[in-house]
């Protein structure tokens, strides 16, 4: 049985990964190879349909590569039992996917339950996590998902994903469905939380601004291929292709516009 070691982060490697869905006329992921260092906050960035979500889902074996290998901590995950792998891998999705018939506490306790933690340990951990994601345990523990705002739901989603201290955390556009203001504060809290976690994070988004805000490394994808994997500064300074340069340049214009507007409104 595959065991995870607590709070020691691991690297994630892709080696010539190809993934094609049945009946598709092209590969969703088309020969991707790169290595994500342990503890990195890596953002997979690209337009919709570029294969970033599919690539993410190969890491917890929700998608099985057509060819190539995915490694976690240097180990080929094809040799790891899927349920054991997933219990050691956090997973947050845009739709949150909270279980409507369970309370907030029960939702957060899903993976610890699957791992047969004892009740006291689960309760303690649940409260700890609610505190960590900024929800008062007293008030939120016994609520049901439908009683929460979108932002609160996603906080619970994050708490559930990290409950059993996963080595790798996969986040698939987790803030895509929350409004812009809640989004920004969730992003900031995300950074605060992951600094405490020391987990290797793969975060999928199509939002350049979000990628720049969160990532210590960005992997830009297009048409199933990896175009560049680098730190944000490096990518801005030395984009590997005109496409990437344009991607960030548009964003630059927007930022300049925002700054200008802010400056003007301050003066007014």
């Amino acid at each position: 049985m595959w065991r995870r070691s607590l709070s020691i982060s691991v690297s994630v490697g892709f080696d010539s990964v190809v993934a094609r869905y049945p009946q598709a006329d092209r590969n969703a992921v088309d020969g991707v190879s790169f290595e994500i260092p342990a503890g990195s906050f890596t953002v997979l960035l690209g337009p919709s349909g570029c294969g970033k979500s599919t690539l993410l889902r190969t890491v917890n074996r929700l998608v099985t590569p057509t060819s190539g290998t995915v490694t976690v901590g240097g180990r080929d995950i094809a040799s790891i039992e899927p349920t054991a792998l997933r219990r050691a891998t956090g997973y947050v999705i845009q739709a949150v996917g909270l279980f409507a018939h369970m309370t907030v506490a029960q939702n957060i306790a899903v993976v610890p339950q699957l791992l047969h933690w004892d009740r006291e340990r689960i309760e303690k951990r649940t409260d700890e996590l609610l505190d960590l994601v900024g929800l008062d345990p007293q008030r939120y523990r016994l609520r049901f998902p439908r009683e929460l705002s979108g932002g609160e739901q996603q906080r619970v989603g994050v708490a559930r994903a990290i409950a059993a201290e996963p080595q790798v955390l996969l986040m698939d556009e987790p803030f895509g469905a929350v409004d812009a203001i809640a989004r920004r504060s969730l992003q900031d809290e995300m950074l605060r939380i992951v600094r405490a976690l020391q987990t290797t994070i793969l975060f999928v988004t199509h939002d350049v601004e979000e990628a720049l805000h969160l990532a210590d490394r960005i992997a830009v994808m297009r048409d199933g291929k990896l175009l560049q994997y680098a730190a944000p500064e490096e990518m801005l300074r030395a984009p590997a292709s005109p496409y990437i340069a344009q991607l960030f340049a548009v964003n630059d214009d927007l930022r300049r516009y925002d700054e200008l507007r802010n400056a003007l409104s301050r003066r007014a």
């Binding site: 917890n60 349920t83 792998l85 219990r87 999705i93 994903a161």
Partner: peptide, 8 residues
């Protein structure tokens, strides 16, 4: 999807 991803 979430349930499967969590390892059920």
């Amino acid at each position: 999807d979430a349930a499967r991803g969590l390892g059920m």
